[in-house]
Design a protein around this nucleic acid. Structure first.
Lengths: 148, 148
DNA sequence: TTTATATATTTGTCATGACAAACAAATAGA
DNA sequence: TCTATTTGTTTGTCATGACAAATATATAAA
């Protein structure tokens, strides 16, 4: 039998790393008294980088389920960090923008993301970081191809 | 400002990889008609490796929240894959064992885990895999130290 | 134009993750 | 022994992930 050993499984360690990184990010956000989640931060970050993304576009960019993205956007909207502008040409869609509060928030979020990244990669050579990043992109592409 | 670029962020790519790997695992489990989740598989795997873990021990091993581990164990118990044996010396704890059904299941799960691992790491050199594994362990240790 | 299909989004449900609170049993201290 | 604290576990709540179904609008086909 092909028995998996979790202790030497890259898949498993990616999963654990992801959980731990998210916990650190949560902690840092909490330390900064920011009422936002790591997942919401990803969406806000994409919205801040371009004007007028739709929920569908954000869902694709952030690799999140369409339905869940829709709900997260609702929360960001209710919290007042984004504004939705209905598209006159297509009544199904809205385009998303950062509000003033969202713009203020995103500045602080970049700082939090910076802190959590530094904690995670502390003591890891730049060269190694490049190798790992490249390998993770390969993993993402492998899994993406399988799921297509 | 220290602006994070998600496209070159190791943290972000670890998160995305974890999501994609889980999707592949879900898909494979579904293909095999196995009514179990990737998270439950991790718990079952630990239970299969040693006799009589408690929920607390499993929670630590699997890096999962105690409360969530407790609920997942309830589900595995209800589904009939494990059995709980009350400890006569300490009435607070139960020790967990695989049932006959659980033992049958774990064989198939190893095969699924093997498949999903192969899909994820296809085309990645053994050497690189070692580097990535080692780096992920460093990330886990870094984040763990921060959260302590 | 009318109907069928495709697209964008929302809603519902169940499993899991984080976190706080409740509980019961075990253990330490007065 | 009795009380306080610790330990192991369970329950409650909210956010997210997966997935199915519903809804509304757009577009293509007849």
């Amino acid at each position: 039998m092909n028995k998996i050993n979790l202790e030497t499984s890259i898949n498993h360690h990616i999963a654990i790393s992801a959980i731990m990184i998210k916990r650190v990010f949560y902690k840092i956000l909490s330390n900064h008294d920011l009422k936002i989640t790591p997942e919401q931060w990803v969406l806000l970050n994409y919205i801040s980088e371009s004007n007028g993304y739709t929920i569908g576009e954000l869902s694709g960019l952030s690799v999140k389920d369409f339905a869940n993205t829709s709900r997260m956007i609702q929360k960001l909207d209710i919290a007042g960090f984004i504004t939705k502008k209905a598209d006159p040409a297509d009544k199904r869609i809205s385009k998303l923008y950062l509000s003033k509060e969202g713009k203020d928030l995103i500045e602080q979020l970049h700082q939090c993301a910076f802190e959590s990244t530094n904690i995670a990669i502390e003591g890891i050579d730049k060269e190694i970081q490049e190798i790992v990043l490249h390998t993770l992109k390969k993993v993402i592409s492998n899994t993406n191809n399988y799921l297509k």
